[in-house]
Amino acid sequence: MKSSLPEGLRELFQQATRRGDVPWQALLRPGDWALLAISAALVAASFPLLWRGGIADRAIVKRDGQLITELALNTPRRYEVQGPIGTTVIEVQPGRARVLSDPGPRQYCVQQGWLTRANAVAICAPNHISLQLGGRGGANASYDSINY
């Protein structure tokens, strides 16, 4: 079968597979090493900088969209809220909150686990309860994990 590779690509393949070439270290010049080191440091620094996210400072508990209470996220505590089918228990620890138990049949909001970011939401739909974390929002205060 006749090869149908483009001319330029064939040439490059032939070059790349030729034997007895230079070791790869020889392909890097001093400035390349410096640039790689600086880039790696910057990339590593970008993680904590950009992944810090919105810092949550309070847990907002709502029933039927109506505010029930706001819990500060600095002291551990539990909060029980009554819904149409039973009691939903919210647990708060420093910097995070979760739905500890809920009477709903599928337990989605419980299995969501700890919420740590501002605007994260856990919704216990059968019991009409929602738990949302609030923070110093800034420009994105109107977005939550549903919008995302």
Binding site: L27, L28, R29, P30, G31, D32, L35, L36, S39
Partner: peptide, 9 residues
């Protein structure tokens, strides 16, 4: 001092 790797990155 700078080769194709710098340009590429």
């Amino acid at each position: 001092w700078f080769g194709p790797v710098t340009a590429s990155v």
